[in-house]
């Protein structure tokens, strides 16, 4: 009996929530638009962040130092240098990077340019070397210095700085999106709370009668909270739809355009994105509505 009554109340609250939305169409439309815009902007930042993280993680995994050796060094000397590098603290793996190997890569890279290819025909301009992989990318500059001190080492390349910059940029983006989300959420809450206030004002007669016939405070409040949740969730759903549609288009274009940038696919993120954005929308709706009813519903 109790459960059937509660189900009936739930139906009543949801029905009242929707009728509240319908009776206040302009403000409801405005609130849903604001929530959609806020959540869409938030979603775009989230997608940026996810991809930047993904790319920088991949980059960190592949971070390497390349060391090249003076011309004319004997094979035994080269092998000795390899062993010395292996013993440096923080080095995970050392792979020989022979001049012949580098020549092949260069020939492939300039396969369309006969002028350059011609220069490779008679002599190999490359040096013998090593590719060094690290356990922790933060050690890159220390290891680089240590390798450069070894005899016969000609020069050392390190792409860790670029990767550090990428990681730093991801951090900045996270900060920006955090503040942006906070501001947008506050604006959305304010707008929703105003919409609910208007709704309460237009139904003040009804609320007054409800109080006199002994409706509990929660019974009076729920329809307005439901209204807020509907606004938040509808806004979130529209925003998620727009984002996923736009993102899918971008991913397919970039994949065809630049093979080298590997983006997170829509299939990997859509479930989490919908869930989180819906929670955010619903949360904004609940806070917006409770804020207005707390002040305006003294029973």
């Amino acid at each position: 009996m109790v459960t059937t009554m509660k189900m009936r109340n739930l139906k009543y609250f949801i029905g009242q929530g929707f009728s509240g939305l319908a009776s206040n169409r302009m403000m409801s439309f405005a609130s849903i638009s604001i929530v959609t815009a806020s959540i869409a902007i938030f979603g775009i930042f989230i997608l940026f962040g996810i991809n930047l993280n993904y790319i920088s993680e991949q980059a960190i995994d592949g971070i390497e130092i390349q060391a090249f050796i003076d011309r004319g060094a004997e094979q035994a000397v080269i092998q000795n240098i390899g062993r010395q590098i292996e013993q440096i603290d923080g080095v995970r793996e050392v792979i020989p990077y022979t001049a012949a190997e580098q020549l092949i890569i260069a020939q492939e890279m300039w396969a369309d340019d006969p002028v350059i290819l011609q220069r490779f025909e008679n002599s190999n301009p490359f040096r013998e070397g090593f590719r060094i992989f690290l356990a922790d990318p933060n050690d890159a500059s220390r290891i680089e210095t240590q390798i450069s001190r070894i005899d016969y080492v000609f020069n050392v390349n390190n792409d860790a700085d670029d990767i550090q910059a990428l990681v730093g940029f991801a951090g900045i983006l996270r900060m920006i999106s955090f503040w942006l989300v906070l501001i947008l959420a506050l604006v959305s809450i304010f707008i929703i709370s105003n919409t609910i206030k208007l709704g309460m004002f237009s139904r003040r007669r009804e609320i007054n009668i409800m109080k006199y016939v002994g409706a509990t405070n929660w019974f009076i409040r729920w329809p307005f909270i439901v209204e807020g949740i509907i606004i938040g969730c509808v806004g979130a759903l529209i925003a998620t739809g727009l984002i996923l549609w736009g993102y899918g288009a971008i991913v397919s274009r970039i994949d065809g355009w630049l093979g080298m940038i590997d983006m997170v696919s829509v299939g990997d993120i859509y479930k989490n994105l919908i869930l989180w954005l819906l929670l955010l929308g619903g949360g904004i709706g609940i806070i917006g509505s409770t804020l207005s009813i707390r002040k305006h519903l003294i029973v």
Binding site: R205, E206, I209, K211, Y212, V213, G214, T216, N217, V299
Partner: peptide, 17 residues
């Protein structure tokens, strides 16, 4: 609210919806 359920109230201005 439970107090108010035990008192039926009628007003001069009827207060009908």
């Amino acid at each position: 609210p439970y107090l108010r359920r035990s008192v039926g109230t009628v007003f001069q201005d009827f207060r009908l919806l």
